[in-house]
Structure formats: C-alpha cells, structure tokens
Nucleic acid binder design. Structure first.
Lengths: 245, 245
DNA sequence: TGGCAGAATAATGTGCACATTATGATTTCA
DNA sequence: TGAAATCATAATGTGCACATTATTCTGCCA
C-alpha cells in the first residue's frame, strides 16, 4: 500500500483490531446459526481460505473463542466445536437461577422510575413482536430481557457475566434445533415477572423467575440428535469477515 | 469432544503447552504477590528477557491474561496492570453474595454425609492453621473454603465461575497491601457458616454468608494507596518460567 | 481379506524479520 | 525561555517460512 508517512493523528485504525473482531464475529455467527455441528473440527487453513484472511487472524480468533469457552482446543490436534452435555446446560441454567432470582428480588427492593419505564417498554416491545409474528425479533428480545434485568441493577460486572451465561445457554439451542427456536413461552412469563417487580412482590418475582428458567431448561431437554454433518465451506456460505449481512 | 480412538502414547510434550503455562503462571504469580502495581506497563521484550523465553510466548500469555480479565490491553500501546476501582471490587463481591447465599441455602436443603465431613475437615484445618500461626496457609484455606462450598453443589461450571470471581476479588488485596492479607476474620465466620449448614438452617446460613462477604468488602475498602513503583526486573526477582520455587 | 507398518500429505506450532505505531529527545523559532 | 515540530529509538503487530506433529493413504505380509 502507498503509505503517506504523514499520518496526522488518530486514524481509525486501518483494519487491525476491526478485522480481528470481524473474523471472531464471523465464526461466532456461524456457530450461533447452527451451521457447525458439535465435534466439527475448525481447520485453520480452510477458515482462512473461506474468510479470505491470513491464517494468523483465524488463529487469534480461535484462541480467543477457546479462552472464552466457546470452542475446545486439543494441543497439536486442532480446535473443535464443543459437545454440550445436557448436564452442562442444566448447570448453566442452575447458575442463572441463582443469579436471576437474586436480581429480581433486588429490583423489587429498589428500582427507579426510569427502570420501571424501561421494563414496561420492553414488555410492550415483546408483545408487539408477538402480534407481528416476528420470530427473529422476538428471540432477540427474549434474551435481552434477562440482560436488561441485570443492567437495571447497575452492576456492570454482573451484566457482562450474565451476558456470557446467556449466550452459552442459548448456544445449545442453535446446536440442536435452530428452527424450533422461536416458539418458547417467553413473553407471557416475562410480562408476569415485570408485573411482580413493579408490584414489589419479591417472593412472587423470584418464584416466577425460577419457574421461567426451569421451564426453559425443561423445554430444552426435549432434544433431538443433530442431522448429518456439514462441510465447512457450506457452513460459511453467506458469512464473510468483511461484510456483516 | 473429538474422537481420539488411537492414542499411541502420551509424550510429556517437550515444552510447548507446559512452557506456555509456566510463563502464564509466572506473570500471574508476580501479580498475586503484589510486585506489579496498578498501571504498570508489561513490556514484551523486557518480560521475554527476564523470563528467558521468546517474545511470542510472552505475547500469548499476555493475550490470555487480557482475555481472562487480569490485564488490560490498549491496541498498539501495550498491556497494563488494571487499576481496580473500589466500585468494581464492590460489584464483584455483590455477584459473589448472590451466588454464595444461594449456594449455602442449597447445601442446607441437601448435602450428603461425605460433604458434611469435608466441611468439618476444612474448618478443622483452618483452626489448626490459626493455632500454628501459619498465615500463608490460612490465606489459602480461606479462599478454598468458598470454592469448596461451590464444589459440594456438584456444579462444575459454578465452581469454575466462582474460582474466577474469587481470584479477581482477592487480586485487589495483593495490589493494595499484600502484607495485611492474612489477619482477616475468616476462620470464625467460616466455622459459623458450616455450623448453620450442618444444622440445615438455611435462613441463618444465608445471613451469615451475607455478613461475611459484607465484612470482607468493608475491610477491603479501608485501603491505602500503593507505595512507589517498582522496576520490572525487580518484580520478577525469584520468579522464573522454568522452575516454580 | 484383514490388519499393520511406513511413507506421503496436511495441519498445527513457533521463531524471525519487517512494517507500523508510540514515546522520548533534540532542535528551532517566536 | 518556552512551546511546537522533527527526528531517533523502542515497542507492538503481522506475515512468512520452517519444524513438529497428526492423519490419511498405500503397500506388504500373514
């Protein structure tokens, strides 16, 4: 590239960290879309060729995904899609139960007026999505509801932690049956929980959240084995590191 | 997990992953020992020279530490020791409160006979360490107590999660005043909590745990600014990547 | 035919060299 | 003298080549 060595100052970072994120996001997107089945080996040269980036970029992204618990690495063997046991999913939901029942109890004890408004607004949005039968949007909102509760506690670390737990628990969905995703009974439960919080009924709110999460894990346990494996090139069809569709 | 049906022989892996862990541990040890003050820049060439490994090894270890939240990285600037706000410490203790009160409540509801024995044994060990005035051992046991409670729940994910939270909350200790480390009122509180669990008094156990954690964060809030900065070579005096003293 | 040993191939791991960027020192001009 | 601009140095980021290790293929032999 022709470099004009008079780089004034804060350049938007020509492509370094942005490209890293792009590769990371591309792989994660393929995972969330359920295109990569459990046990699939993620070969670095193939990924580099498909995503049209250098192998080192792929390597860094894979390392990060491994550190964050999305993938599993075996030294000198490669990086693989994890095979989530239903037991592990239960454990994650167990942790979520501990945290989220505490969260709603705290919100019952103290929540500001704008917090109440945000809760109402969210329930309203979910209801609207249900009426419009926009299942993709509803799925997104269902997840964000739990994040919202954490954020309203004003604990930044808690929000981040719960965000990770949430994605890890929903990953099992995408791995098993992404098409059955959307028809969960989320909206009704969410509305009930918000009603209890606004009424400051801590005991009821905690019970509702407990039942909600138990229902989710129950529903998720009704699970069927994945179909036949898919080639890596097909898995990344339409997914690029450059353009985010 | 991938199918490893043909396992020829497990070679001790001449130095690859073992060396990686060694470098990682060396840096982490220096951090926990309080040799590296908040804001200190961890230069890759200097670390490589001190630890007598290649720069790439240092690089990988630093990346991992950043991903795990131990260090903070600024692109093209370097890797730095984090400056933990007292507010962040409070947030972490807040999460721990949510989880650990739930944990002791669950243990009150159901715990096996061997679980009870392990709890008693741990309290006994702590008492013994107090009598022997072995402060290093007492500090280790104090942390392990909380891990033990999580492990007795039988939730592997929960154990790992709490382990991370614990180390992150104690890191603030090491950063501020490592020598004041050991005289916390842990043992007495721990014994009380175990007694409540064995009596299956869930309400009391939760209250005791809450007070215990509140006491810790209170004690930790009485904080004094760190002394003068230290050179990187001095920080790693006696710490090597090859031999763990 | 079935299994096993060895070679060929492909993938992972790592050190090195170089480009890019930040930091500190020095000079120059008002 | 002071401040800004420029140059020099050091650190970070990245692609590449090669070594090591795993996997697959092929031929051999019982």
């Amino acid at each position: 590239m022709a470099q004009a060595h008079k780089k004034t100052k804060t350049r938007p970072l020509k492509g370094d960290v942005a490209m890293d994120r792009a590769v990371y996001d591309a792989i994660r997107r393929a995972m969330l879309m359920g295109r990569l089945l459990p046990g699939t080996k993620l070969r670095e040269p193939a990924l580099a060729r498909v995503l049209k980036v250098s192998r080192e970029r792929v390597r860094k992204a894979l390392h990060r995904l491994v550190h964050e618990g999305w993938l599993e690495a075996v030294p000198n063997r490669g990086t693989f899609m994890p095979v989530l046991t239903i037991e592990e999913v239960r454990e994650i939901y167990d942790i979520r139960t501990m945290l989220e029942t505490a969260i709603v109890q705290r919100l019952c004890a103290e929540h500001s007026a704008p917090a109440a408004l945000r809760l109402k607004a969210h329930v309203s949005e979910e209801r609207q999505a249900v009426r419009a039968d926009d299942r993709g949007r509803l799925f997104g909102l269902s997840g964000e509801f739990h994040i919202l509760l954490a954020e309203l506690c004003g604990n930044e670390q808690l929000s981040m932690l719960l965000r990770g737990l949430l994605t890890r628990s929903t990953m099992h969905f995408s791995l098993s049956a992404p098409e059955r995703f959307h028809n969960c009974a989320g909206p009704h439960d969410h509305a009930d929980i918000v009603r209890a919080i606004l009424a400051r009924d801590a005991k009821k709110a905690a019970k509702l959240m407990l039942d909600h999460l138990l229902g989710l894990v129950e529903w998720q346990s009704a699970w069927r084995p994945p179909p036949d494996p898919v080639a890596l090139e097909e898995a990344f069809r339409g997914i690029s590191a450059k353009r985010q569709a």
